[in-house]
Simulated assay, not measured.
Amino acid sequence: MPALTTVPDAQRPTGKFITEYVLPRWEQLNSFRSLLRHSRMMALMLRRRRVHVHQVQGIIAAYLFNGETVGGQYGRLTTLVSDQAFEACHSKSLARRYFAAAGLPVPEGRSFSADQKGAAADLISGTGPWVMKPDAARHSRGVSFGVTESTFEAAWAGAVEANPRSAAQVMIEQFQDAISLRFYVVGSMVQAVAARVPLFVVGDGTSSLRQLLAASFEARQVNPLLRITLPEISQGLLGSSGRSLDEVPGPHELVLLSEDGNLRLGGIPVDVTEAVHPALNDLAVSAAHAIPGLGAAGVDLLTPDVGSTEDAVVLDADAWSNTRMHRYPALGRPRRAGAIAAAEQILLRAKYWDKPVLPPESQDPDDD
């Protein structure tokens, strides 16, 4: 069993989700004729609304409406995100403070600077299991699950090294055995929700994990998003599972090989927009609103059950969020609403940003 829990994988929240939502439809993985990049999709949606995307340099672009600059983008980051929100989304600990200040549920844990290694080690020696992550790194770099006293040194070194800023902190939090959900929030509305299912296989009693992974990855080739993000099959891919590639799982045994649903670590996105409890949508919107100026972002929640808010926590916010996992999910309905809603928000700002809220004749001249 993984060090994180003694509960069999099939009985864990993610295992139950896989059994109910994924395995019955595995033979019908979504296929798509083409794959558009997020920035390309945004450009198309803006063009349909008469907003011209002018490429300035590299990944920098300006938005023009009626000949005037009304916004722009840097990669996937647009002017729907304020400087304050950009700073918050660049620091997991800062975003967590915004969430907590708004009274939202967050995982228990602490942040440590690079010179507080001893204090961090003392925390690890207490009740766990623990997850260690760099404060400012992205794409799951430097994240370790199931950290113990014996693995602390390697996990700490990995988290510190992955931080893009030398002064950035390291977060240590208690592991939440839950389903990872990504909500794409624009303004005050959730546009799409995807469950980020980590790497898994189902045993047949004769095939090794290596063979099962090879068969799983072959099946994923029909989906262009899964195809371009397939990782190399190696022992390192199994992370903290404690498994070996040569191990042979029993017949019908569900094996979770990772805790991270990142596509480049073998995870798959499953659309659950219509399945999540409405209160989870409200929680995601509240998380986005907790960070001033966060007009469009991916919000990550952990919940033991997509149909309930019990024990759900807000994990993170990503201003660079990519809508492709919603547009090209492995299973479930493809969603274009994220890019459409973001383009609509940019158009609304272009039309009304500098306009008075009240017509001039209704304003009191003494207000000045």
Rank of each mutant, 00 (worst) to 15 (best):
H54Y: 13
W130R: 01
L283D: 11
L302N: 08
D135E: 12
P107R: 02
H38T: 05
R336P: 13
S208Q: 07
V7D: 04
L283W: 10
T303C: 09
Q57W: 13
K355H: 08
G109R: 02
T229E: 13
A341M: 03
L257S: 11
V81D: 10
G298I: 03
E253T: 04
S258R: 11
K355W: 10
M325N: 08
S180I: 07
V186D: 09
A43S: 15
D367G: 03
P334A: 11
A102V: 02
L213C: 02
R12P: 03
R49K: 09
G128N: 05
V56F: 12
M325H: 11
I233L: 03
L238R: 06
T5G: 05
L238M: 06
P359M: 06
S286A: 10
M41L: 14
R264T: 15
G239R: 06
D364Y: 08
Q73N: 11
R243H: 07
L347R: 00
T148S: 15
R210K: 10
N223L: 01
A296M: 00
T69I: 11
G293R: 02
A43K: 04
V285R: 02
A95Q: 12
A297F: 11
D368L: 15
A62I: 02
R227S: 01
M45Y: 09
P329Q: 02
D271Y: 01
C89F: 03
S308I: 03
N262Q: 11
P360F: 12
L225W: 05
K133W: 05
Q363N: 12
S113R: 14
D316K: 04
L238Q: 04
V255I: 15
D246M: 01
S125N: 12
Q221A: 14
G239P: 05
Y98K: 00
L302Q: 02
A296L: 06
R25A: 09
P107G: 04
D368G: 01
N66P: 05
R96A: 09
V201K: 01
L123A: 00
L104F: 08
N262W: 07
V170T: 08
L209I: 15
L213M: 06
D135A: 07
Q73E: 12
A288Q: 11
A297N: 04
I18G: 02
A284D: 03
L35A: 09
R97C: 15
V285E: 02
G67Q: 11
P129W: 06
L280M: 13
N262H: 11
M1E: 15
D83I: 10
R141N: 09
I233R: 07
P356Y: 03
H252V: 09
S144L: 01
S207A: 04
Y74K: 13
S144V: 08
L237W: 11
Y184N: 02
E20F: 08
I228L: 09
L77W: 06
G307E: 04
G250M: 05
G236D: 11
P356D: 04
R165F: 12
A137R: 01
S180Y: 14
M45R: 10
L80V: 08
S82Q: 04
R210N: 10
S31I: 00
V306P: 03
A341D: 01
T78K: 06
L213R: 13
G146A: 14
